[in-house]
Amino acid sequence: MSFSHDAWSVFELSIRNYHELDDVNAPEQNPFPEGSLERLLYAKNWIDTVQWHLEDIIRDEHIDPSEALLLKRRIDKSNQLRTDLVEYIDTYFFEKFKEVTPKSTARLSTETPAWAVDRLSILALKIFHMDQEAHRESATAEHREKCGQKLSVLLAQKSDLSTAIDQLLADMENGSVKAGVYKQMKMYNDQSLNPILYRKDT
């Protein structure tokens, strides 16, 4: 089996496990061993899944403003954790391929493996929820038909993205592509880099 196939299976498991309780406060029950790539992938998708539902909640027009602010803070923290996990996953791949000598013709990739995996994780969530909408009995037939069409597009995107990820990893392994860990350097959560935060201390 390919890496993308295995990753997709982990994402589906995470999404199924979350929806057993369907609660943004439910604890993560990661079944994979410490230090494994699968554990990182599960944790990554769990964060994405919780954040997906936080984004739904915060869009309630009748939400209390103070609750919305708390949710926004939580989403910001979630984004930082998501970024950290992506970098951990990239570190896994670069450690795996560290002995590979790039070919003289090796090209640079605009995207690291883990950021492509990040998109695959989000795509798994889109497919899960679009499938729900395509089969929601309380919806109109027109709604279900439109969602079914969108679902077909998302499934085609899954096929293309999965192939691209597997090709990228194969090219890194054979030296046709070289890439590095590109840190996101997010500034808004950093007390020393966000002017709104550091001006409070002056």
Rank of each mutant, 00 (worst) to 15 (best):
A116M: 13
V117Y: 05
S176P: 00
V177L: 13
E20Q: 14
E142K: 13
F93D: 10
N79S: 06
Q157P: 00
L123F: 03
A141R: 06
S9W: 01
H62Q: 15
L70A: 13
Y88V: 03
R107Q: 12
M1I: 08
T140M: 02
L40K: 08
E133D: 14
I127T: 11
R73I: 10
S138P: 08
N189P: 05
Y42E: 05
Q191M: 09
R39I: 01
K77A: 13
I15Q: 03
L70G: 00
G35V: 03
N79A: 10
L85T: 13
I58L: 05
G148Y: 10
R39H: 04
D190H: 12
I47M: 03
A124R: 08
L197Q: 06
D131R: 13
D118R: 04
N79T: 04
S66D: 09
V24Q: 08
N194C: 04
H62F: 11
D201S: 14
E99N: 02
V117M: 14
F94I: 05
D60T: 08
W46V: 01
G148A: 01
M185W: 09
S2K: 13
K126L: 11
V100S: 02
L85V: 09
D190S: 13
I63L: 12
R199T: 04
F3T: 10
V50S: 00
P113Y: 03
D22E: 09
K183N: 08
R107F: 08
Y198M: 12
K126R: 14
K72D: 06
D171E: 15
S4N: 11
E61P: 15
V117E: 03
A7Q: 04
L21E: 13
V50N: 01
E95C: 06
L169Y: 11
L37N: 08
V153K: 08
L71E: 04
E137W: 01
F128W: 11
E67D: 02
I122P: 00
L168S: 02
K183W: 10
F3D: 08
E87A: 06
H129T: 09
D23N: 15
E67Q: 03
W8M: 03
Y18S: 01
E61L: 12
C147W: 02
E12L: 11
L41Q: 01
I63R: 07
N17W: 01
K98Y: 02
S152H: 05
P31C: 00
F11N: 04
E55Q: 11
D60R: 07
S162C: 12
K103I: 00
L37I: 10
A106C: 07
A141G: 06
A134Y: 02
E95D: 15
C147M: 14
H129N: 13
I165A: 09
K186T: 06
A124D: 03
Y182D: 06
A134I: 03
L120Y: 03
